[in-house]
Structures are given as C-alpha cells and as structure tokens.
C-alpha cells in the first residue's frame, strides 16, 4: 500500500471539480484534486522516489514498483511558460515524500485567469486501486489517498 501525500494545503474536492474533462473524467488516471490556499508556497513530493518529469508547473514522481504520481499545479498553466514558478530540485533527483519541489503562488495563476486546482493522479492505475481519499481540508504532507 503506497501512501500518497498531499502536495499542497487546501481543500480536497475530487477530480470531478477540475475544469478539464481529461482530468475530470479520470482519463489521466484516478486520484483527486485540491483547491490550494493562496500565497507563495512550496508544492511537495507526494511520494518518495525519482523526479521522472519536472516542468515548472507540473511534475511526476516515480516511486517503489515504478508507480508514478502526477501533480499538476493549476490547469493550462503550461501556457505560463514557467513564469511565477521556481523549481527547487532537478529532474531525475531522488526525493523524499514531502520534500519541496516547486515554489509558486496560486493567486498569481488566478490573476492570469487560470484555474488553480491541483490534480494529483496515479498514472497507469486502475480506478479501483485508490482508497481512503481525503475530502475537505488537507495539509500538505499529510495523507491524501492510498494506492493499493
């Protein structure tokens, strides 16, 4: 059982609240989404492992058994070309669960007219392997869901 931690503090609302059908319908994978609190903050690794992909606005950490978790900071934020995002580690780095990876401010994303919601998705996972997903207030670094 892999414990997936929340990368940000805020309110867990579920993937269905993500204003992008590909995430909302679970096509990227099962998981949940968090409405982050505003203010400059650090998004942290949801699991221990290797940072397989590090964009300014999104990252994938691959942990034990090759399981990958995608964290996407806001929707359509690829269009910001990294503006307002600061990478705190290099791609390929080995990180601990809860280690800060990207510094950003959801308020800046909202000011650009984009959704700040943060999908946290188990990649290549069946929809029945996610359990104990937290709903409501969640602190970064605390358990968000379990991956069987």
């Amino acid at each position: 059982m892999l414990s997936v931690l929340s990368p940000v503090s805020g309110t867990a609302v579920g993937l269905s609240e993500v204003p992008d059908p590909v995430f909302a319908q679970g096509m990227v994978g099962p998981g949940t989404a968090i409405l982050p609190r505003n203010g400059r903050q650090e998004a942290v690794a949801p699991i221990a492992g290797r940072v397989a992909k590090l964009h300014a606005h999104a990252f994938v950490v691959v942990g034990e058994g090759g399981r990958g978790v995608l964290v996407h900071l806001g929707i359509d934020t690829v269009k910001l070309n990294g503006e307002g995002f600061e990478r705190l580690v290099d791609e390929g780095a080995d990180v601990e669960a809860g280690q800060p990876l990207i510094r950003w401010d959801p308020a800046e994303v909202a000011a650009k007219g984009m959704a700040t919601v943060v999908p946290v998705v188990a990649l290549d996972a069946g929809h029945d392997v996610i359990s104990r997903a937290v709903a409501g207030e969640v602190e970064k670094g605390s358990q968000l869901f379990q991956w069987a």
């Binding site: 992008d20 590909v22 995430f23 096509m27 990227v28 964009h55 999104a58 995608l70 996407h72 690829v78 269009k79």
Partner: peptide, 14 residues
C-alpha cells in the same frame, strides 16, 4: 501546442 503533455498524452494513451 503543448506537445504530448498531460491532456494530449491522456487522449493519446486512451
């Protein structure tokens, strides 16, 4: 525009 990033990648794999 974004390459095979999250959304196009999900559609492609789907």
């Amino acid at each position: 525009e974004v390459g095979l990033h999250a959304r196009p990648a999900a559609l492609f794999v789907g």
